[in-house]
Amino acid sequence: MSDVALQTEDLTKRFGRRMAVDRLTIRVDRGDIYGFLGPNGAGKSTTLRMLLGLVRPTSGLIKFPVQNSSWEYLRARSRVGAIIETPAFYENLSARRNLQLLASLSGGVSKKRVEEVLEIVNLRERAGDPVKVYSYGMRQRLGIAQALLPTPQLIILDEPTNGLDPQGIHETRKLIRRLRHEFKLTVLLSSHLLTEIEQLCNRVGIIHEGRLLYEGGPEALTASTNLHKVRVDNLAGAFELLSKEHGLSVSQNGASFLRIDADAEALARANALLVGNGIKVYELSPAQESLEEAFLRLTSRNELN
């Protein structure tokens, strides 16, 4: 059995003249919590909608593990659970009836399974209430419940904590972790919240203006830099001195550090320069870039390009 839960190849979507997704190639492995990160309008939702068959790709491929025909594609998709944006239900029907109706469309989902998923999302006691009286958080949990109905191998969540209060966000994140650990699900979630991705995901795909800028572990994203921090006695003098030096980029990060982006050679030259000019160097060490910084670095570079 393949380790790949989902793969796209050069997936492209164009709405008229606007390129929403541009030759996107991603790979989600089994067991991943894959964070699909990007600012609003980056193409995240469009990509997820393409994966779920809501939007027709202009070109490119979407591959589920077993899929040689359109029938198998439909079958493979039947093992994918999803929430796209705010989950919507038939307001006059109870949560249970909504799930039962959706279960009947999912093929081979038993009534027992409906009760199971209600239990998982902790809505069993309120399952008889009509959805119209549900809070936003409850709807979100019901959304996850419906996504879990077909006992999926892969669950796709589009901005699952969007609009929730802190308590709701906490509960949802806890639930997502539980899905992975307890039910061995692969999760593909999109978000524009870096903290969410940082807390939940073991793999990240960063998308900006429809193009994939990065795919890999969050650690690799932040570690794959030449960023260093320098602590000196004269911060302003050091900044002025290093700013003039070729081959390195310097920035002032707060009151106590300078950040230098430079390779080993340039770093040695910078150190010599500071010491030669009478500036005391207390510390010169590799700096850990935050995901936010990495994200901004990648997206701003893309914009410059």
């Binding site: 779920l52 809501l54 079958r75 998709r77 239900f89 419906q146």
Partner: peptide
């Protein structure tokens, strides 16, 4: 919004 819910079903 229920259309996308239905259309994600097989």
């Amino acid at each position: 919004g229920t259309l996308r819910m239905i259309c994600t079903r097989p």
